[in-house]
Write a protein that binds this DNA or RNA. Structure first.
Lengths: 142, 142
DNA sequence: TAAGTTTATTTGTATATGCAAATAAAATTT
DNA sequence: AAATTTTATTTGCATATACAAATAAACTTA
């Protein structure tokens, strides 16, 4: 059944959750090329762009709870893609050489994902939708 | 930080996931009045509207995997809000009297949630966005 | 400077969701 | 009617995410 035909097709909760699940499935496929689920990939890209970034900032940028950030970093450390250093109460997260080598491949994944959905949805339309969703999310975010 | 300002503010994965998390948080609040997380509430509403509905149909309507539907029904059974009957390979799901009593309250929750987000976002704008998201999700589906 | 408060991060625990395999019934084919 | 295929559901296992509490460091204030 189509979402637009569902009883709840007019409901923001239902629709945003269903959309996010479908988009995530697509993203998971794209990111298989670097053997990372998308949330890990996005965190790692943020770390690659700001080596030494703190978990609190990652939490603010990625809109994930601090505890979630901790958990994601732990896994990236296990995979030897990130390391933490500790100085008093603050923690810095750095990419490993292995992560730096992966960076070009990750950019490809991002591009492939982008092309995949814009080819399905159209560049115009998807870009407008993404912007609208962002605005709405910001309004809800308080 | 605002989503629209984030490095990934243009990315469909990031934005749809972040939006869904924020919307879900709002929905959770609304549904506390009946002590149900939103996914359970939506399933139960579907069962109330079509008593005897099969898990496969619930899966199609709610865009959740069959295994997820099974798990949600199990919890609703524990809470004495639903019962399953088994006939060969098919399963039928019925609401209990307790669930029927709750129905008006659930409708209130749905309304309150709707009012809450439309007051933040505007009726026009949110209704248009929800429709667009539904269309996009349908295009991505499969 | 000691006491209290705030901030940063992690840990313990709970929940949601999914995939893949298992099970079992029904339908189809030979 | 036996063998095969398809369909419906559940189960086992894995993962993502969050909340609340715990920890620990840094700041503020008296």
């Amino acid at each position: 059944m189509k979402i637009t035909d569902s009883k709840y097709g007019q409901c923001l909760y239902f629709t945003s959750a269903a959309l996010a699940r479908k988009v995530e499935k697509l993203a998971i496929e794209s990111w298989k090329a670097v053997d990372l689920p998308p949330s890990y990939a996005y965190l790692l890209m943020a770390v690659l762009e700001e080596p030494g970034i703190q978990p609190s900032l990652l939490s603010a940028e990625l809109h994930l709870q601090p505890s979630t950030i901790t958990r994601l970093i732990e896994k990236l450390e296990e995979k030897k893609l990130a390391v933490r250093t500790y100085e008093g109460k603050i923690t810095n997260v750095y990419p490993t050489p292995k992560a730096k080598e992966m960076q070009p491949k990750m950019k490809e994944c991002l591009n492939r994902f982008y092309k995949q959905y814009t080819s399905l949805l159209g560049e115009e339309e998807s870009s407008r939708l993404v912007q609208d969703m962002g605005k709405i999310a910001d309004k809800l975010g308080k």
